[in-house]
Amino acid sequence: ENVVSAPMPGKVLRVLVRVGDRVRVGQGLLVLEAMKMENEIPSPRDGVVKRILVKEGEIVDTGQPLIELG
């Protein structure tokens, strides 16, 4: 699984990683606000951040690609 998608609609509050960062399974990639709750979106696997597909403040839909892992 190379693309991390939004599990719910919401607003991207914070991106916690940068392109080139090594991440571990379960590590927070970004914080999504949904229904006034902050939800940290975890990495599904170990890898390297290849691309960040959203910006802070952006509104996303369920299933929208957020981050690509390499």
Rank of each mutant, 00 (worst) to 15 (best):
E68Y: 14
S43E: 15
N2Q: 11
G10T: 03
K55N: 03
V49M: 00
V12C: 14
E40W: 12
P42F: 07
I52L: 09
L53N: 01
G47L: 13
G10R: 13
L53P: 03
P44D: 00
E58V: 11
T62L: 05
E58I: 01
K11D: 06
L30V: 06
G10H: 01
M37V: 09
E68H: 15
Q64G: 02
N39P: 00
V23E: 01
I52T: 11
D21E: 08
G57R: 00
P65H: 10
E56W: 06
L69Q: 06
A6C: 15
G63E: 02
P42S: 06
P42Y: 03
I41K: 06
V12H: 08
V3T: 00
G20T: 09
L53V: 11
G20D: 00
K11V: 10
S5E: 04
I41R: 07
M37Q: 01
L66W: 12
N2T: 01
V4A: 05
V49D: 15
L32V: 08
R51C: 13
K50P: 05
V3F: 10
I52N: 08
R14A: 08
V60H: 03
I52C: 14
R22C: 13
V19P: 05
G26Y: 00
V48Y: 01
G47I: 09
V19H: 09
P65R: 14
D46S: 07
V31W: 08
V19R: 11
R18E: 01
G63L: 07
L69M: 12
V17W: 10
K36Q: 04
P65C: 14
L30M: 00
L30K: 15
V12G: 14
G26S: 06
D21T: 12
A34Y: 13
V19D: 10
T62P: 02
E33G: 06
P9L: 12
K50I: 02
A6V: 03
G70I: 02
V48T: 09
R51E: 07
G28Q: 05
D46I: 11
I52F: 02
V19C: 14
E33H: 02
V12Y: 13
Q27P: 04
G20H: 13
M37T: 04
V4I: 04
E56L: 12
R22Q: 11
P42K: 10
P65Y: 03
V3Y: 13
E56Q: 12
I52R: 03
V49Q: 06
V54R: 04
P65L: 12
R14E: 03
T62H: 08
G28D: 08
I59A: 06
R18K: 07
V49R: 15
V23H: 08
S5N: 03
